[in-house]
Design a protein around this nucleic acid. Sequence first.
DNA 1: TTGAAAGCGCTACCAG
DNA 2: CTGGTAGCGCTTTCAA
Lengths: 352, 352
Amino acid sequence: MTQHGSRKSASPITAEDVARRLGVSQSTISRAFSPTASISEKTKLRVLQTANALGYQPNVIARSLITRRTNIVAIVMANLTDPFYPVVLDALAQHIQSRGFQTLLFVPSPGQALDDVLPTLLQYQVDAVVLASATVSSAMARDCAERRMPLVLFNRYVPGLEVHAVACDNVAGGRRVADFLVASGHARPTFIAGEAEATTNRDRQRGFVSRLSELGIRSCLIEEGGAYSYEAGYDATKRLLRQRKRPDAIFYASDVQAFGGMDMLRQAGIRIPHDISVVGYDDVPLAAWHGYGLTTIRQPIPQMVEAAVDMLGLGHGDHLATAPTTRLILGTLVERSSTTERPGSARSKNRR
Amino acid sequence: MTQHGSRKSASPITAEDVARRLGVSQSTISRAFSPTASISEKTKLRVLQTANALGYQPNVIARSLITRRTNIVAIVMANLTDPFYPVVLDALAQHIQSRGFQTLLFVPSPGQALDDVLPTLLQYQVDAVVLASATVSSAMARDCAERRMPLVLFNRYVPGLEVHAVACDNVAGGRRVADFLVASGHARPTFIAGEAEATTNRDRQRGFVSRLSELGIRSCLIEEGGAYSYEAGYDATKRLLRQRKRPDAIFYASDVQAFGGMDMLRQAGIRIPHDISVVGYDDVPLAAWHGYGLTTIRQPIPQMVEAAVDMLGLGHGDHLATAPTTRLILGTLVERSSTTERPGSARSKNRR
DNA sequence: TTGAAAGCGCTACCAG
DNA sequence: CTGGTAGCGCTTTCAA
């Protein structure tokens, strides 16, 4: 239908070209592509028609120079090899696109500090930034605030800092797991931690331990994991098994670690859930696979993504209006085959 | 060290601001940020210093308007939930960044045609496009060529079309698996296909079947998978097991399918590799996990990514010089615990 | 409703 | 080496 071609031009067609062809002013071309501009339906049609015939499309880069909005949102995300983040990225990118924005992805290289990447993104005049990797220093947060640059932390937050953030309610998640394990009759639960510094890790641990304590279990064993990774889960579990007293349940700070742990347990001849129940956190797609059937806390990615994008206040400048807040969203426990009732359990019903 | 701040300006600092402050021309500021421009070391230092003090950074959007290069590469990628692509994206993005470019990520929504997204990307004046999702129509390829827009297909190609493409040599990969399985004494191999239309799938099947045939096995069973997914592998395997004669080896068109298949086989009480050997394709990180230990063809992602980025000819315009070519890169077989020697095997050595 | 003109922030060319 | 000047392609006044 459209017939581009013929022109072997390296330099693309401009509004000027279309204008000349139609014998109208260049402004008229511009107006034809602006929904709010006042232009007669008739000329608008003529313009769009020949624009299409010539293969003309407005140069949004040039536009952004005057409108001061690029319609680009930056996403900073490392950990792409962790199965959790691709799901987040997929949801984020699609959500952003559906609002008419594009996604500039930044993947920090291993040693790269965030302080390096933010200036680069700012140079690109992005309209907003989502940080799903590392956190932000107070200096950078201030910088962004001064530049009126919407910034939201995803799945992390900085306690004392005035920054928008959205995360799963990890404390509540940890508590939920404690409730669940105790209710199903577990007496010697263990927590295997993840990335030591991460708020996610700390909150999950804190919620878990404190709730256990409230329920009368004060001796929760804690094994450091060191990282949110398969190997970390595997190794930590190996270390754990050297202890004299074996736990009857293990709560891993993340699903990937749980997978490593489950593989380790099975190698050691320990049956799941018969000998040890296993619980993870995230509910990555893998958790539902038959090979694992992992009971876990589901991070409500759709809601989290929606909240994050809302906070950016794309389009209207209402981001500026709202004071920086941390939105915590409740996860839900998804019960699968990696956990079971222990004798003496308070619950009598069987499930699923 | 740097002291931004003080200015509560919503409008960012421009080169003009810095110039005024220093009592020099705006051109001088520009030159200080251009490596090739001729400017005395002394004034350059002065400029950079006060620029830094004022928090000034060149607006690359404005720059790109005149240089006609945005230093942005677009990546189109769906399938983010397939464990293979995040690894690719990670490598691609980092590689692109290391060359001083940024990545504009486009994730097509489920039903969205590629014909929709390309115009959008072109509006953003990206310097190049990597297509790692779907393929390109000849009309679009022509469009890109006319606009001198470097375009490379990743992990796919269009047979009759003049477009740059890089992919694993899937035919060779399929043949390699055939060689391996026959050499290790397998007599009744089966292929479980993936996404029917994908060149990757077809090539793997073709290489596998043709090589088997050369080796004297003409009766290779083929089961349609329909998709590169865990469920597809699981279901296809279930169907397969209803056949009267059970295979002694299954080659899945992709790792994810193999995982689904392995879980199915185990549920059916079939031992891997004792009863059936399993081979996948991709070598996603998961394949190395203890729970699967999948023998598979490793896609050489680093080389593929490097080749792709080279083909884009970022920076110098040498993309235009080279005629569109399809670069196929050899994968390697990674042997793990999902395969074993069968009695009567030509190979006598045991392994790992 | 339309056209002319003034920039958005920058690079690039031209003199000096 | 530096300062002026002319745009890059577009949006947006301001008149007509």
